[in-house]
Amino acid sequence: MSTLQDTVAAEWIKIRSLRSTSAFLAGGVVAMLLGGLILFLLVQSYDAASAADRLNYETADPTVVTMPFVAFFVGAIGAMSVTSEFTTGSIGAALLAVPRRRVLLGAKAAVAALVGGAAGAGFSLMAFADARLMLGNRPAPLNPWPRWTDAVPTVLAAAVVVLVTCVVGLGLGAVMRSTAATLTTLGGLVLVAPIFAHFLPTTWQLRFGSILLPNLAPQLAGGDHPWLLSQGGAVAAAAAYVVLALGAGAVSFGRRDIS
């Protein structure tokens, strides 16, 4: 049997040689720069505000401003690693090389997790370093991290959310097979659903919002947040996303014929 290790190595070659991979990473960089700009404007306006007004400022948290967009772009890399093969017909060549579909999907998932984790860690570290530099020694609520080390759980949690989003993108892609449908759904899940949640009555906003991917970041990190899940609950929710997406992907990919 083709070993999983060989297949993972091959998938790594494939994901690196896709032009869309670097395009979406560039998208992540743009999202980070724009997020940084927004935080910069926020800090400027904070400095100009009166002491009383300053207490009403929201946290300058990149998990809210920057990371959902980063997660979308990195998630798209995971999605494209499978949908690009369906849309170009190269899935046939991939399956001739690795006919056991679960091995192929498993290798793709491993590579998506690797890319998602690494890109997530890189982007979230940069976004937080950037935010921390701009915030300086300004106090809470604008700056929730009095010391650098206070931001570590949030940075890690944000990276985990990007990783999960990348794997979810892959699972969605394996089910939908179309790039357009997959990216639209992924965008809906990561970017639109949190906005939609705001229109719900508060109880439902909290219930629904707590299980949304971007909102898992503060819940995974613990600390102050309005959502309902404990850290353990957030870990379970993140794991559920991975299991559901990959499970649905494996069932759909395993059963349907390749035309």
Binding site: K14, S17, L18, S84, T88, G89, S90, G92
Partner: peptide, 12 residues
Amino acid sequence: AVLDAGAAHPGR
């Protein structure tokens, strides 16, 4: 096996 000429990703 050669199934069809489009079986390679055009971007690679």
